[in-house]
Design a protein around this nucleic acid. Structure first.
Lengths: 296, 296
DNA sequence: GGCTGGTATGCTGATTGGCTATAGGTAAAA
DNA sequence: TTTTACCTATAGCCAATCAGCATACCAGCC
């Protein structure tokens, strides 16, 4: 039983004649006669009653017809599904984004445009910090991530620079710094700082610490926060000032003033899109393409 | 996309290696390599990542695998269904039986044995008189019938003689004939008869009438009944005597005595099994075979 | 560097599938 | 009844396809 024979048989069944079917499928009549006979021999059953004016289906032929149509349908369905999958029009793609950057307009734009353009792709966005993203990329439970990396060269990963973040200062509106912004970090020696925990995002943390070491400045930390939102909440509550990525500006939290300091702006914090080099998902590559369009 | 390629692909997917699959399907490795490549070209998608230690499925390959397995399952399912159908193990068969003969032990035995032997065939038994059976056989809404025919030769039908019925007399137990059975029909000249209506079973009716014409006997009919049961009920009620097929003996109705008369026993009433010659249903032919066994 | 276990490729022979021509059969038309 | 038209079946031939063999090539491993 081969697909060729099945489609011939369906044509014969639908036209009620081998000759008519042969014209329909653009194959000579003897070829069809033979293929039908081969099918019958293969199945061990007569499928047609041959008459002078055409053929009629036997009981077995009728039974086969329905199944045959279904088989052919299955085949075209598989074809179109694979084709859609190949173009990344269906399937699934998962993306990790640091919570901080979910609020950045360009990122939001990316998510929105992807959903608009590929509405049938199951698009899952996971709010994850850089460390967990990297882990899940490596273990293949995440297709792509928007995250901080210590280097563009990541074994087994491909990367693309999205934007260059810097650091900035976040102070409570109630603080005297709010009215009279500092110009140098040194002015903040006696100021209380809210600080991050290293474990949750070592790449970011180490980068900031390295920069501060170069500046020879050691903040007086009075409080630690688990993530950026927590830290900013504490700043808003007046617990102290904080050093945050410039992307945080998108948060628009009440009670906070963001300020740029030249010494902080020189700390480059590149934001990357990363994915496994061996990931052949077209849906993912569409996402990469769209990222180029949005950030390029 | 042909079944050969699909089954090769499934083997490759399951073994994770073209070479291993080639051993499994008993085909040389280059042939498999080529067929897989043809399949990929046909579908316009890469299905395998080739590595030194074997192959891995791509996204498209994984997607195809599930469908491919289903396709192969469908194929074997179709095969077994057609085979069962060919042996008459599944499908449907409809049989008409005259109400009178439903009670005949051999017929009941036939029905029971068919159900036992072919439990998965939808076996429908229709209580119908001979005329309607013949009609429905001709219009193909009945597979077989157990009925009276005016001749064994029926155009378009095949027949088989089941048994030779005769006629007999049915008298009420309350009748004086019950105590002193008649020996000749002539004795019944002044007796009331319950008679059948021609239209419902012309073959039977005409045969009886022809026999009576030969005997030169005209019964005094006081009442007509629509079918055999009705007629017998009237006899039981004492309305008169009746001439009935000998098969009616199986009915065992209270208040009735059946009696044989030589003149009635000479009226042959052959009971036939009949089916359309063009009916190729194996389930039907199994029924015919079983009929031979039961009645043969 | 050689070995091992895998995939890819070129060549050849066998199988298969399709085409043409034609035979044979049956139902409708003449 | 004969003829015609239309259908299926068969035979023979040719082209395309497929499988097998030998071998190249490639990557990891000792």
């Amino acid at each position: 039983m081969e697909f060729r024979q099945i489609s011939y048989f369906v044509a014969v069944a639908e036209t009620g004649s081998i000759s008519a079917a042969s014209r329909q499928v653009h194959v000579a009549q003897p070829a069809l006669t033979r293929q039908i006979r081969l099918l019958e021999e293969d199945l061990g059953t007569r499928l047609l009653e041959r008459h002078a004016r055409g053929v009629r289906l036997t009981i077995a032929g009728k039974a086969l017809y329905d199944d045959a149509v279904q088989l052919l349908d299955s085949r075209t369905r598989i074809r179109t599904r694979l084709s859609s999958l190949g173009q990344g029009l269906i399937g699934k793609v998962s993306l990790g984004v640091t919570v901080t950057h979910l609020w950045v307009p360009a990122v939001a734009e990316l998510l929105r445009r992807y959903r608009d353009r590929y509405p049938h792709v199951a698009f899952e966005v996971f709010p994850l910090l850089s460390g967990p993203q990297l882990e899940r990329l490596r273990e293949d439970s995440l297709d792509a991530g928007i995250l901080y990396l210590d280097s563009a060269e990541q074994p087994g990963l491909e990367t693309r620079l999205l934007q260059q973040d810097h650091l900035m200062l976040a102070v409570p509106e109630t603080s005297h710094w709010s009215a009279a912004p500092p110009h140098r970090l040194a002015e903040l020696t006696d100021t209380d700082f809210v600080w991050g925990v290293r474990s949750i995002s070592p790449v970011y943390y180490d980068r900031v610490m390295a920069h501060f070491a170069r500046l020879n400045f050691a903040p007086r930390v009075v409080q630690y926060g688990a993530d950026n939102i927590t830290i900013l909440s504490m700043v808003a509550a007046g617990l102290g000032v904080a050093i945050v990525p410039s992307a945080s500006r998108a948060h628009l939290m009440p009670g906070i003033r963001f300020m740029d300091l030249p010494e902080l702006q020189t700390c480059d914090m590149p934001l990357w899109l990363a994915w496994r080099s061996s990931n052949d998902s077209p849906a993912l590559h569409n996402l990469v393409g769209l990222t180029d369009a949005v950030f390029g």
